[in-house]
Amino acid sequence: MDDPIGTTVNGERCSLPGGASVLLIDALREGLGLLGPKKSCELSVCGSCTVLIDNEPYSSCMTLAQEATGREVTTVEGFGRRGELSDVQQAFIEAGAIQCGFCTPGFVTAVHALLDRHPNPDRATIQRYLAGNICRCTGYAPMLEAVERVRDRRLAAAEAGLEQVR
């Protein structure tokens, strides 16, 4: 069965390969060639496959592709514009929050969602929100730093009456 699904991925209308049992991660990776979401635990524990659907984080490994019908999907490829990094991506680089890089797409995506929902998170909130994203390389301290940097920059920018840059 091959009914294409109308959906928006990273701002573009497209159709994902159909089939009821197709998982969103396979539709994105195999169907659209978006290789940012990674397959690791495949049990919705590690967060490497995190994508946003209507700005909320989902495990694309545990989500049917059909769930995206008529909705907006954002993968790591969707952050930043025309070669510019998003503030989260920039902060990950600055803080040294990237080593092997396999968890990075999911982590960056989750941090965008975190700061969207909690613009001024304290440490406990950050830890609770990101406890579902596993990184085996960095020891997490740099991720915490990266999130706090972006938080502080956005708050400072908002305070200065500037338009938030994302």
Partner: peptide
């Protein structure tokens, strides 16, 4: 590598 990794490339 950092730029490539953080953008999913």
């Amino acid at each position: 590598d950092l730029r490539a990794k953080v953008t999913g490339a």
